[in-house]
């Protein structure tokens, strides 16, 4: 590409330029220069990676404290695995419905895009509802974050994930208003892609949560 431009420059170069002055050569090596959103996407990806580091620290804290029950309840006493499996399924469903919403947005079908985004939001809300029910159930049994180091670390890690899902849903609802208001403009497309990355990223974090916290907690307790 660059070599080709250079050749053309050399052929069309006026004679007087050859005498001494160098003709300017532009090295346009950035192949994504035409996408105004590409800088945003890379920046958002780097934000997600920094968010992953926050979760890594919370996972490390949980890993260190996961057996410190302070004579309180252990994971095997507290965790209801079928409920966790249901939550995992809900989050996975919401990931694929968001993917379908992106595909419909690419075909510029407003009604279907909003329908699939709405369905994603419903799955997200169901996930949050079950998680809050679980937290409420644990706290009402006296297993709140103050009970032991294990429970402090548990509520910090799972609560932070739940908080991310909450903000993801707020973002989703905002987009469901912005989309019909402005149509499929590039800005809205960029917003959809960013939220999509955020949403799928939360699903990746949840893989770590259900494996490391719930499954291994019950298995090794």
């Amino acid at each position: 590409m660059t070599a080709h431009t250079e050749n053309r420059l050399a052929e069309n170069r006026p004679a007087e330029l050859d005498a001494g002055a160098e003709a300017p050569v532009f090295y346009d090596t950035d192949e994504h220069g035409h996408h105004p959103e590409s800088g945003t996407m890379l920046g958002f990806w780097i934000y997600l990676m920094s968010d992953a580091l926050i979760f890594a620290v919370l996972f490390a804290t949980y890993g260190v404290l996961s057996r410190r029950y302070a004579a309180g309840p252990s994971p095997a006493d507290l965790f209801d695995l079928p409920l966790v499996a249901l939550n995992t399924a809900l989050l996975l469903f919401s990931s694929i419905t968001y993917g379908v919403a992106m595909l419909e947005a690419e075909k510029r079908r407003m009604g279907l895009t909003l329908f699939w985004l709405g369905l994603t939001g419903v799955f997200g809300l169901a996930f949050l509802g079950i998680e809050l029910y679980e937290f409420h159930h644990m706290i009402s049994e006296g297993a709140g974050p103050w009970r032991s180091a294990f429970l402090s670390a548990f509520f910090a890690l799972v609560g932070t994930h739940g908080l991310h899902v909450t903000f993801g849903i707020i973002w989703l609802v905002t987009l469901m208003f912005q989309l019909p208001m402005h149509g499929f403009i590039p800005e809205n497309h960029r917003r959809l892609m960013c939220l999509g990355m955020f949403w799928h990223f939360l699903d990746v974090i949840w893989i770590g949560v259900f494996t490391f916290v719930y499954l291994m907690g019950v298995l090794l307790a």
Binding site: L92, S95, I207, F210, L215
Partner: peptide, 15 residues
């Protein structure tokens, strides 16, 4: 989706 569902179901089944 299919891969993720299978890879989720097996660990739950194991535990």
């Amino acid at each position: 989706f299919v891969l993720a569902a299978v890879l989720t179901a097996i660990p739950f089944w194991i535990v």
